[in-house]
C-alpha cells in the first residue's frame, strides 16, 4: 500500500542533512510551508543552500533559519524589503552568499530540473549585469541567455488537500512556486491543511500528482502571532 503520510512535520524533515539544497515554496507568506520551516529550525541541519522567492519575515520560518546562521547561501529573486531584516543583517556582515535570479528564470530553472532538461535560453536579463559571464546566443534575432537547471535535495511545499498517494490540490495563489518545486527535488515534502481518503479528490483537480511527492503531513496554517 502506498502511504506517504507522515505523522508530523518533525518526522517529515528528520533526515535533512547539513549542506543540503532546499527549495522552499511560497510567494511572501502565501503558500509558504511555515510549519516545515519551523521543524527544520528545531531539526538542526546547517550549512544549507535555500532557494525561495523571498527571504522570510521578521524572525520566523526562513528568516529565523537565516538569523540562526544556518543558511550558507540564498538563491532568490527578491530579498530587499523591510521585514527581510534577518537576511539583510547577515548579508551586510558578509555571513551569507546571495545568488540573485530574475523571478521567471528562477522558476523556469527549477522546472527544467524537474523536467530533465539541461537548461534553456531566455531573453530575461540579457545585456544586464545579472547575465554577466553567462553564455548568450542570438535566437530569432533576440539575445538570449543560457540558464541552467536548479535542482534541490529537498523541496518543502504547502498545499491544501492531499491523499495518501501524495496527490495535491492548492488553495488560490498559494499555488505559486509549489507545484514546480515539487518536481525539482530528490525528496519533496508537502504540508497540507487536510488529508482525505484515496479517491476523494477529483482527478481533474489534482495539480501535483503523487509521483512528485514523497512525504505529506497535516499542519494547520502556521500563524506566528
Amino acid at each position: 500500500m502506498i502511504n506517504k503520510v507522515v505523522e508530523s512535520a518533525m518526522t517529515a524533515v528528520a533526515d535533512v542533512r547539513s549542506g543540503s539544497t532546499i527549495l522552499v515554496g511560497g510567494f511572501g507568506e502565501a503558500g509558504s510551508p511555515a510549519t516545515l520551516l519551523q521543524a527544520l529550525i528545531e531539526q538542526g541541519a546547517t550549512d544549507l543552500t535555500m532557494v525561495s522567492n523571498n527571504v522570510g519575515y521578521d524572525d520566523y520560518g526562513l528568516a529565523a533559519l537565516i538569523a540562526r546562521g544556518r543558511v550558507r547561501k540564498m538563491i532568490c529573486a527578491f530579498p530587499n524589503y523591510a521585514a527581510g531584516i534577518a537576511f539583510r543583517n547577515r548579508y551586510l556582515a558578509g555571513q551569507i552568499e546571495l545568488e540573485l535570479v530574475p523571478q521567471g528564470t528562477l522558476v523556469e530553472r527549477m522546472r527544467a530540473a524537474g523536467a530533465g532538461l539541461g537548461g534553456f535560453f531566455t531573453p530575461t536579463g540579457a545585456e544586464t549585469e545579472l547575465s554577466a559571464g553567462k553564455e548568450t546566443r542570438v535566437i530569432d534575432g533576440v539575445v538570449q541567455v543560457l540558464e541552467r537547471p536548479l535542482k534541490g535535495d529537498y523541496a518543502l511545499i504547502r498545499g491544501k488537500v492531499a491523499d495518501r498517494w501524495g496527490n495535491l490540490t492548492y488553495w488560490r495563489a498559494q499555488r505559486n512556486f509549489n507545484p514546480i518545486m515539487a518536481m525539482a527535488a530528490t525528496t519533496t515534502i508537502a504540508e497540507v491543511s487536510e488529508i482525505v481518503p484515496l479517491g476523494a479528490i477529483d482527478p481533474d483537480v489534482i495539480i501535483t500528482p503523487g509521483p512528485f511527492i514523497h512525504r505529506v503531513t497535516v499542519c494547520p496554517r502556521y500563524n506566528p502571532t
Binding site: P79, N80, L92, G104
Partner: peptide, 16 residues
C-alpha cells in the same frame, strides 16, 4: 547604494 539588491519579476516583464 541599496545594500541588498532585489530584482523580482522586473527583468522578465521588461523582456517579455
Amino acid at each position: 547604494g541599496d545594500a541588498v539588491p532585489g530584482v523580482g519579476g522586473a527583468m522578465d516583464l521588461c523582456a517579455g
